[in-house]
C-alpha cells in the first residue's frame, strides 16, 4: 500500500541557488514525521512545494498513490491537507470559535442563512468539542485569541487545521517561543492528532521535541533528503551529525 503523501525527485532553483535538489519525502497515515535540517537546507521550500504555495521545476507528488498537482493552497485544502504556519495566521481580535470557522462559517438554516446570518451557537459548540477532543488547554471559545497564551494560540491554530484537514497536517516550528508547560501541551496535541490517523509533518529545530513525538525523522541537507531515522532508535548526536554532514549516513537507513 502506498504512503498517504509522498514526493519524489523534487527540484526547484531560485537563480543560482538550488533550493531543492532531487529531494524525496514521504509520510504515512497515523504517523509523525519530523523534517529537520539546518537553516537553508530547504525545509520551508519543501513544505511550500508540497502544499501548493510554490511551483516545482521537476518532481512528482502523490496523494494516496495518485499523482496530484496543487496550483493553490486551496487545492491542497480540498484534499484534506493543511499547514499551521509559524505565524499561526489567527485573527487576534476574534475568539477561538470565530477563528476556527473563519472563511467556513456555519450559516443559519433557511432565509436567515441566505441573508448572511451565522449559526454562532453551533460554531461555538463544535469548536469546544474540537478542543476537548484534542485535550487542549483552551478554556473558552469566546475570548479573543489575542489575549491567550502562546500555547493556547498554537492549539487553536492546530485545532483549526485539524478540523479541516483529516489527511495531512504540516506544523511549522510549533514549539518555538513556547514555555515548558505550553510545549508539553502542544506535543500532547500532536500525538492525539496522530492517534486519529492523520499524517503529521513536524518541522522543528528542537531535537528533544523531535525525538519525543516523531515516529520517523527525515534529515534535509543542501536541498535533498540525506537520511531517515526511526525516532525510537536515534539520538540527538546522530541527528545533528546528519544535519551538518559530519556523519555521512546512507539514504534510507530506516
Amino acid at each position: 500500500m502506498s504512503p498517504r503523501f509522498e514526493a519524489t525527485g523534487l527540484s526547484r532553483r531560485f537563480g543560482r541557488v538550488q533550493a531543492l535538489d532531487n529531494a524525496d519525502f514521504d509520510v504515512d497515515a497515523g504517523e509523525v514525521v519530523a523534517l529537520i535540517g539546518d537553516n537553508g537546507a530547504g525545509k520551508s521550500t519543501l513544505v511550500k512545494a508540497l502544499t501548493g504555495n510554490l511551483d516545482l521545476d521537476a518532481g512528482e507528488v502523490r496523494f494516496e498513490g495518485e499523482p496530484v498537482h496543487f496550483a493553490t493552497p486551496q487545492d491542497a485544502s480540498r484534499l484534506g491537507i493543511e499547514v499551521v504556519h509559524q505565524d499561526l495566521a489567527l485573527a487576534p481580535h476574534l475568539d477561538a470559535a470565530q477563528n476556527m470557522f473563519l472563511g467556513r462559517e456555519v450559516m443559519r438554516p433557511g432565509v436567515l442563512g441566505h441573508l448572511g446570518f451565522m449559526d454562532t451557537p453551533q460554531m461555538r459548540r463544535r469548536s469546544a468539542q474540537a478542543f476537548t477532543e484534542l485535550g487542549s488547554a483552551v478554556r473558552s471559545v469566546v475570548v479573543p485569541v489575542g489575549s491567550m497564551s502562546g500555547g493556547q494560540k498554537q492549539t487553536v491554530a492546530i485545532a483549526r487545521a485539524v478540523a479541516w484537514a483529516d489527511k495531512v497536517l504540516f506544523l511549522d516550528e510549533p514549539t518555538a517561543a513556547l514555555g515548558v508547560v505550553q510545549t508539553r501541551n502542544v506535543l500532547d496535541t500532536i500525538k492525539k492528532v496522530r492517534d486519529r490517523g492523520i499524517a503529521v509533518v513536524l518541522i522543528s529545530h528542537s531535537m528533544p521535541h523531535v525525538l519525543e513525538v516523531a515516529d520517523r525523522v527525515q534529515v534535509l541537507r543542501l536541498g535533498r533528503r540525506v537520511a531517515t531515522y526511526r525516532g525510537a532508535d536515534t539520538s540527538v548526536e546522530e541527528l545533528v551529525g546528519a544535519m551538518t554532514g559530519a556523519l555521512d549516513p546512507k539514504e534510507g537507513a530506516a
Partner: peptide, 26 residues
C-alpha cells in the same frame, strides 16, 4: 468540518466540551 471531529475519543482525560466556555462570558 471533518467527520473525525465528531467522533468522541473515549480515552481522553481532557475536560469535556461542557467545561469550555461557549457563551459570552456572562
Amino acid at each position: 468540518m471533518s467527520t473525525s471531529t465528531g467522533a468522541g475519543t473515549g480515552t481522553s482525560t481532557a475536560p469535556t466540551a461542557s467545561t469550555i466556555e461557549t457563551t459570552a462570558a456572562h
